Amino acid sequence: MIDHLGITVSDFDASKAFYDKAMAPLGGSLLYMVPQEYTGGAKVGGYGRDRPVFWLSAAREKPRDHQHVAFTARSRAEVDAFHAAALAAGGKDNGGPGLRPHYHPNYYGAFVLDPDGNNVEAVCHDPE
Rank of each mutant, 00 (worst) to 15 (best):
P101M: 12
P97A: 10
P105L: 05
D93V: 07
G98C: 10
A81S: 12
P25V: 01
A42W: 06
W55K: 13
L56V: 13
G48R: 15
K21V: 03
L99S: 11
I2F: 08
L31C: 01
H4E: 01
G27V: 03
F111Q: 03
Y108T: 04
V112S: 03
Q67R: 11
S57K: 14
P127Y: 10
E78T: 05
V79N: 09
A89C: 14
G40T: 11
N94D: 15
L113R: 07
G45P: 09
G96L: 07
N106D: 15
D126A: 15
K16A: 12
A17C: 00
D20Q: 03
D126Y: 04
D50W: 01
G46A: 02
E37S: 11
S75D: 05
L87A: 06
T8I: 12
L56Y: 13
I2N: 08
D65A: 14
P127C: 09
A85R: 13
A85W: 14
A86E: 06
S75E: 08
A14S: 08
D116Y: 07
D13I: 00
G96D: 03
A70I: 02
R60Y: 05
S29W: 01
R49H: 07
M33C: 00
A88W: 14
P35N: 14
G117S: 01
M1K: 04
S15E: 03
L31H: 00
G91Q: 03
F18T: 02
A73R: 11
L113H: 10
K16L: 15
D13S: 04
A58I: 06
R49V: 11
Y47M: 10
Y32A: 07
Y108I: 05
V53G: 13
G45R: 05
D80P: 11
V112W: 00
D114F: 00
G6L: 09
K62Q: 13
I7N: 02
G48F: 11
T8M: 02
K21D: 00
E37A: 10
Y103R: 01
A17G: 02
A84K: 15
A24W: 01
Q67H: 13
D3C: 04
V34F: 07
R60W: 07
F12G: 02
F71K: 15
H104N: 14
T39M: 08
R100P: 10
P63Y: 06
D65H: 13
G45Q: 06
G95C: 09
S57C: 15
S57A: 14
D80C: 03
E37I: 10
A58E: 15
F111E: 01
K21I: 00
A70M: 03
Q67F: 12
K16M: 12
S57F: 15
P52H: 03
